[in-house]
Amino acid sequence: MTGVRIGRSERVGRLRAWVLVGGWCGVAALGAGGPAWADAGPQADLAFHGSATMSGDHVEVRLTPRNNGPSTVPDASVLLRWSVPLAERQELPQGCARTDERTVVCGTGALAVGGVGEQIRVAVALRDRPSEVTLEVDTAWNGGVVDPDRANDTMRVLVLDTGDAYSF
């Protein structure tokens, strides 16, 4: 699958930490009935944990999805976005698709409450050979459930060209 070309390349500043984990904090409107998301439907807390390794112009990501409940997730997908463009040709695993020049989305399958999904392993080739890359991991789709705690499924990881695994 060929990615869409973006007219202007993005530059990412040099990060001083080896691994950065950030999250989006949702602001819930509080009223007499509690937070606004409480009545929005089934809830599930998705989490992604894994590692990324960079060697030359290749990055390998291994991640495992988890559903901390309280509801089952019928299907979900995880977004992997790199700070640099990927090479034109990629051999992605089944269940993964390239959505633009820097992004790959992979399905997780159904996730039972308290369940751990199958490990997702994605190896990509980068267009150039940078000394570092920032990987963003996020939920692309959550199967229609509400996730009130996005802090453990949205993160950024700085991966250096050392061959070492950087965990998230």
Rank of each mutant, 00 (worst) to 15 (best):
G23A: 15
R11H: 13
W82Y: 15
Y166R: 06
V116K: 13
V59K: 01
W141K: 12
R16K: 15
D153Y: 02
T99D: 08
A40Y: 12
V157T: 12
A44Y: 03
V146I: 15
W82E: 05
F48P: 01
T103C: 08
G69N: 06
S9N: 09
R8P: 00
T139R: 06
L92G: 10
V73S: 04
A87P: 03
Q119V: 15
W37I: 06
S55M: 01
L160Y: 10
S55I: 00
D161G: 05
D75R: 11
N142Y: 02
T64D: 04
I120E: 08
A38P: 07
V122E: 03
V21Q: 15
A165E: 15
P65L: 07
D100Q: 05
G31V: 09
P85G: 05
V59R: 01
A29P: 04
H58R: 13
A44R: 00
V59A: 00
Q119M: 12
V133K: 00
R156F: 13
L126T: 01
V19G: 14
P130N: 02
P35D: 03
C25Q: 12
E118H: 12
R66K: 14
R5F: 09
S77W: 07
T53C: 07
A110L: 08
M155N: 11
N142P: 06
V19S: 15
G107P: 06
